[in-house]
């Protein structure tokens, strides 16, 4: 930030931990969003941090004692890349988890967790419960509520992942609704590395090395 030339409004805000957040990104409820560092959030990406966990009404008196950060809505790991127009939102669990007396349980909104090196393509909508590390989500993908994506998964463009689907590691999924169409080839892991991509955006972008 200190190297920023005076009077020039930069396109990205670069934090001390190396996150690059576009000024035109729509982040709602920023206090509930946790970035692991070196994460790129491009313009028009939307993260719904306001849909955080809330304490149940029955024990709201004791909620003041909870640790800070316990109601974080979105966890994002290192070297994640959120492209233009994508949307990350935690899903409400009120229809699922409930106490014996049929009242919604403590966690009204399940936090959304992204691992490291997760690429989210343009205009993708992510409502998953968890995404592992080294996951590539293509353009215009819709990930349904409570879907779980494990490590090293490639989701091809225009896929619709139905609610509650669990995608095992090292698979390629596509289709509407999504099916497993293949496996990540032997030695295809390097393609998921996003360190290079991280360097090519920001206020001082470096050209991609070929």
């Amino acid at each position: 930030m200190s190297r920023k030339p005076a009077g020039v409004r930069t396109e990205y805000i670069e934090t001390e931990t190396g996150n690059k957040v576009a000024r035109k990104a729509n982040l709602v409820g920023t206090q509930h969003i946790m970035l692991g560092g070196k994460t790129v959030i491009m313009a028009d990406a939307m993260i719904r941090g306001d849909l955080a966990r809330t304490a149940p009404t029955s024990s709201s008196s004791s909620s003041s004692g909870t640790a800070p950060g316990s109601n974080t809505a979105v966890f994002i790991g290192r070297y994640c890349f959120l492209s233009k127009g994508c949307c990350l939102r935690p899903r409400d669990a009120s229809t699922r988890a409930r106490h014996a007396d049929d009242t919604p349980s403590a966690f009204t909104y399940m936090p959304l967790r992204l691992g490291d090196h997760v690429f989210v393509g343009e205009s993708a909508i992510v409502q998953a419960a968890a995404i592992g590390s080294h996951v590539h989500v293509g353009k215009n993908v819709v990930i349904g509520e409570f879907a779980i994506i494990k490590d090293f998964v490639r989701v091809l463009d225009d896929t619709v992942i139905p609610a509650n689907m669990v995608i095992p590691s090292f698979t390629v999924v596509a289709g509407q609704p999504a099916r497993i169409v293949g496996e990540v080839p032997e030695g295809g892991h390097e393609a998921f590395e996003l360190r290079e991509l991280y360097r090519t955006v920001g206020n001082n972008p470096q050209p991609a090395s070929v």
């Binding site: 306001d50 955080a52 809330t54 409400d92 919604p104 009204t108």
Partner: peptide, 15 residues
């Protein structure tokens, strides 16, 4: 019913 409950929660979360 579920939707009514969800609206109840959203009312607290969305300013």
């Amino acid at each position: 019913k579920a939707q009514a409950r969800q609206i109840e929660i959203l009312r607290r979360l969305i300013s």
